[in-house]
Computed example of a mutant assay.
Amino acid sequence: MVAATGIVGNGAYGVLRGPRVKRVTVPLARLPRSAHGFRIAVVSDIHLGPVLGRGFAQRVVDTINSTQPDLIAVVGDLVDGSVEDLAPAVAPLAGLRARHGTYFVTGNHEYFSGAEPWVEHVREIGLRPLENARVEMGAFDLAGVNDVTGENYGDGPDYDKALGDRDPGRAAVLLAHQPVMIHEAVKRGVDLQLSGHTHGGQLWPGNFIADAANPTLAGLERYGDTQLYVSRGAGAWGPPVRVGAPSDITVVELASKRA
């Protein structure tokens, strides 16, 4: 009992203190030399709600900004609740700072909470939603697709809209909340997909369930010519406890093989 209490208590403290920074270097064959060292701060699964509120959001923002990224990617499951209830909790995200801006894609929990109002709200506070869309970052293409849960709401991912008609000679980075979306990314020649959703399992025995349901539980793996990076996420869903799956904000540094 003492050991179990200690483990749970430490797991709760690990969530509430805020995520730690993890750094990963990802070589991309098509990335030009000019983009070598480009840094993307990846944050997923913040899960702002009744337990993790405005103070937690501010800790996440401060941690991201401290890394001085070139670009910030918020890859879904930002909230667990409505805009009406959680707008004050989300407000600190207006303070996110990156040279090339902050981009957002929906996760499954946005659809449970009202995806359309949340997309409009994050736009209002300065994040740029990528709703099945693509932007040219100069050295590479950044694309984002809606979460697969959106299919139940008539608002699912459209890979052709996000990735079609692009120059195949340019590197492409895709923001997609769920790792299972990697199979479509491979078909379309994406170089790197950035995802979350799994929480790295969060809490035993959830790690076994999440591992069985996702191609990658956490970290970097290769699928053919496409690489997939899965963050464990910044927050927690359900009990604010993590055991064996510490929360993270990941700085993904892109590396050119031509450098």
Rank of each mutant, 00 (worst) to 15 (best):
A3S: 14
G6T: 13
V8H: 03
G9S: 09
G11Q: 01
A12K: 04
R17V: 15
V21E: 07
V24S: 06
V26P: 03
P27I: 03
L31N: 11
P32K: 12
P32T: 13
S34A: 15
S34T: 15
G37P: 13
F38E: 01
V43M: 07
S44W: 00
S44I: 01
D45N: 07
I46C: 05
L48M: 09
L48I: 11
P50Q: 13
V51C: 04
G53V: 00
F56L: 07
A57C: 08
A57M: 03
Q58R: 15
R59N: 14
I64E: 01
N65W: 06
N65A: 08
T67A: 04
T67L: 01
Q68A: 14
V74A: 04
D77H: 10
D77Q: 11
V79G: 01
D85M: 14
L86T: 02
A89L: 04
A91H: 07
P92C: 13
L93K: 06
G95P: 02
R99D: 13
H100G: 05
F104L: 12
F104Y: 15
T106Q: 06
Y111P: 01
Y111S: 05
G114L: 09
E116W: 11
W118L: 07
W118E: 05
L127Y: 01
L127S: 05
L127N: 02
R128A: 13
P129Y: 08
P129T: 11
E131H: 11
E131W: 10
N132C: 12
V135N: 09
G138E: 10
A139C: 13
L142F: 13
L142V: 12
G144P: 05
N146Q: 15
V148N: 03
G150S: 12
E151P: 01
G154K: 12
D155S: 11
D155K: 10
P157Q: 12
P157C: 10
D158T: 06
D158Y: 07
D160N: 15
K161D: 07
L163F: 07
L163W: 00
G164S: 13
R166A: 14
A171S: 13
V173R: 01
V173M: 08
V173I: 15
A176T: 00
P179Q: 08
P179C: 07
M181A: 14
E184A: 11
V186E: 13
G189H: 10
V190S: 02
L192W: 06
L194Y: 07
G196Q: 03
G200Q: 00
L203W: 00
W204K: 01
W204I: 10
A210N: 08
A212S: 13
A213V: 05
N214M: 06
N214E: 03
T216H: 01
L217H: 00
L217E: 00
A218R: 04
L220V: 04
E221K: 15
E221Y: 06
D225I: 07
Q227I: 00
Y229I: 02
V230R: 00
R232G: 02
R232C: 04
G233C: 02
A234Q: 02
G235N: 05
A236F: 00
P239M: 08
P246R: 02
P246C: 06
S247N: 09
S247M: 00
I249H: 03
T250N: 05
T250D: 08
E253P: 05
L254G: 01
S256H: 05
A259R: 15
A259F: 12
A259M: 14
